[in-house]
C-alpha cells in the first residue's frame, strides 16, 4: 500500500478544486483580458466543458483556457480523476458526500413520517406499512448504513479539523476504522431492533 497515495490529505480534498479554480480564473484573465467575470461559470473548472457546448460565447472558448498569453509557459493539467485506481482515502471521501446527499433525502422521509403522524392514525398506518414492507426495510437498512458511515466519517473529519491524524498510516487506519465501525454499528442496530421486535 505504501506509495499508493501522493499525500495524506488526498482523502479529504473536499474543496480540492479551489486552487485549480483560482488558477483557471487567473489563466483566463491572462489569456483574454475581456473574459467576463460576471458569469460564475467562467471561474470554475467546469467552464471548459460547459462553454464548449455553447458556441455563442467566443470570449470564453476553449482556446482562452488552452493557449496562454505570449511568454507564459503552458501549465500542466492534472490527469482526470477516472484514471486513478480507487483508494480508501478517495473512496471514503466521495462516500461521505454521497451518503450525506442520501441522508438529506432521508430527512425528507423523516418529515413525511412526522407529517403523517400529525395527519392522524390512518396516514401514520400507511407510512408504517410502507416502512415495514420488504422494499421499505431494505431502504431503511441502507439508510442506517449511510447514517452510520456518515457519522463515523464525519467524526473522522472533526478529528482532522483539530489537526490530528494526518500521517499517511493514521489516515489509512482511521479510514478502515470508519468502514468497520459503520458496518458493525449498522449490524448491531438491526440486531437489537429485530430482537426488540421479536
Amino acid at each position: 500500500m505504501a506509495g499508493d497515495d501522493k499525500s495524506p490529505a488526498s482523502g479529504r480534498r473536499r474543496k480540492g478544486a479551489a486552487p485549480d479554480r483560482l488558477r483557471d480564473a487567473t489563466a483566463s484573465r491572462l489569456a483574454d483580458g475581456k473574459t467576463s467575470h460576471s458569469d460564475p461559470a467562467a471561474a470554475s473548472p467546469g467552464a471548459r466543458s460547459e462553454t464548449a457546448d455553447r458556441p455563442a460565447q467566443p470570449r470564453q472558448s476553449k482556446a482562452a483556457f488552452r493557449s496562454p498569453a505570449p511568454g507564459v509557459r503552458e501549465r500542466p493539467l492534472s490527469p482526470n480523476i477516472q484514471i486513478y485506481r480507487p483508494q480508501i482515502t478517495s473512496v471514503l471521501s466521495i462516500g461521505n458526500r454521497i451518503t450525506g446527499v442520501l441522508l438529506g433525502i432521508g430527512g425528507v422521509g423523516l418529515v413525511v413520517w412526522l407529517s403523517a403522524g400529525a395527519l392522524g392514525p390512518a396516514a401514520y398506518a400507511g407510512v408504517t406499512a410502507a416502512l415495514l414492507s420488504i422494499p421499505g426495510q431494505v431502504v431503511l437498512f441502507l439508510f442506517t448504513l449511510a447514517f452510520f458511515f456518515h457519522l463515523c466519517a464525519g467524526v473522522r473529519h472533526l478529528m482532522w479539523d483539530t489537526v490530528h491524524g494526518f500521517e499517511l498510516r493514521t489516515v489509512y487506519i482511521s479510514g478502515w476504522i470508519v468502514v468497520m465501525a459503520s458496518l458493525a454499528l449498522t449490524v448491531i442496530a438491526w440486531a437489537v431492533g429485530l430482537f426488540v421486535m421479536s
Binding site: 473536499r14 474543496k15 478544486a17 458569469d39 460564475p40 461559470a41 470554475s44 467546469g46 467552464a47 460547459e50 458526500r97 450525506g100 446527499v101 441522508l103 438529506g104 430527512g107 423523516l110 418529515v111
Partner: peptide, 26 residues
C-alpha cells in the same frame, strides 16, 4: 434534531451544488 439536521444538510448540499453544477442550474 430537525433544526440541526436541515441546517447541516443545507450547508452540505450547498457545497456539493457549488462543486458540481454551474451557471443557471447551480
Amino acid at each position: 434534531l430537525l433544526i440541526a439536521l436541515f441546517h447541516h444538510a443545507a450547508l452540505g448540499l450547498k457545497v456539493v451544488v457549488e462543486d458540481y453544477l454551474h451557471g443557471l442550474v447551480k
